[in-house]
Design a protein around this nucleic acid. Structure first.
Lengths: 146, 146
DNA sequence: TTTAGTGCAAAAATTTTGCACATAG
DNA sequence: CTATGTGCAAAATTTTTGCACTAAA
């Protein structure tokens, strides 16, 4: 997997640094979305000297390069998560445990068509994010969420 | 229209204050989404003494009460706009001139069904926001946007 | 008169920048 | 070597809070 990351980074003309790889590992090993600070805390277990700005910079670059995904959370905090196909932006996020699940039903083509036909506009990007409670959290507590 | 606002506020158990009404007027008279600070600047033309915190507090309350809508902008700034049906969250927003247009093609029922059936989860809220360039902006500059 | 709203100042929280040093290519 | 990455400290930005005072119901 490290190998894969290396080639991905190279394609983006990002240098392969230990910390950059570690950030990817952290995200990859989490099934939930993390804030920059949380990524940083985890990173510090490996690298006692790592700055929060480095984490911010890296997360942003990686998201720009579509290696990871940004999550648009109702609480407006910044979150990122690793997903196999980060160019696919249809997610179901659990407000309680933070799990992210893909929604494969994609209506984007349809949408794009309608924006073009009806509004005469052009789509640059879109967010389809469904916020809710996942299976587990529904069972656990019926849905108490922050 | 002031009358309408009054009854809306009463329903939400929000007191009808001149500044609250003025905030609604500001948003109503704009066809684009505004940041809290922008609302505040406009407000100060009428009320020389109005605090930015007041604007923040009011916008948040009004959004909570579904009187106005929050915009989820890629630049992560907070924006609000007035829309006739703020419980309808399918929008096309122009990244250039900030116009908001409704998207009436609603696939939400379908989505909700699938989240229930396939993920066994529950939908709490959703965002469908299409970011792009509107008709006018496309004509104007072919799409230079921040 | 009781509850909610507001101004101000100040704080909090989050994110970004500048710059000297370090490291990957 | 040369361009990029990083740590640190510091700043910038945005949003929130506390509290005394005011105004709506």
């Amino acid at each position: 997997m490290l190998r894969d990351f290396q080639s991905v980074l190279k394609k983006l003309h990002l240098k392969v640094t230990p910390k950059r790889l570690a950030i990817l590992e952290v995200l990859k090993n989490e099934s939930v979305y993390l804030s920059p600070e949380e990524v940083w805390r985890k990173l510090r277990k490996q690298f006692s000297q790592v700055g929060l700005p480095t984490v911010y910079r890296n997360l942003e670059e990686l998201a720009q390069g579509n290696v990871i995904s940004k999550v648009t959370h109702p609480n407006r905090q910044l979150y990122y998560y690793f997903c196999l196909n980060p160019s696919h932006h249809h997610h179901f996020i659990c407000l309680s445990c933070r799990t992210v699940e893909d929604i494969d039903f994609c209506m984007f083509r349809e949408l794009e068509k309608r924006v073009k036909q009806e509004l005469k506009g052009r789509v640059v990007s879109h967010i389809l994010q469904v916020n809710g409670l996942c299976k587990k959290c529904l069972k656990k507590d019926g849905g108490s969420h922050a």
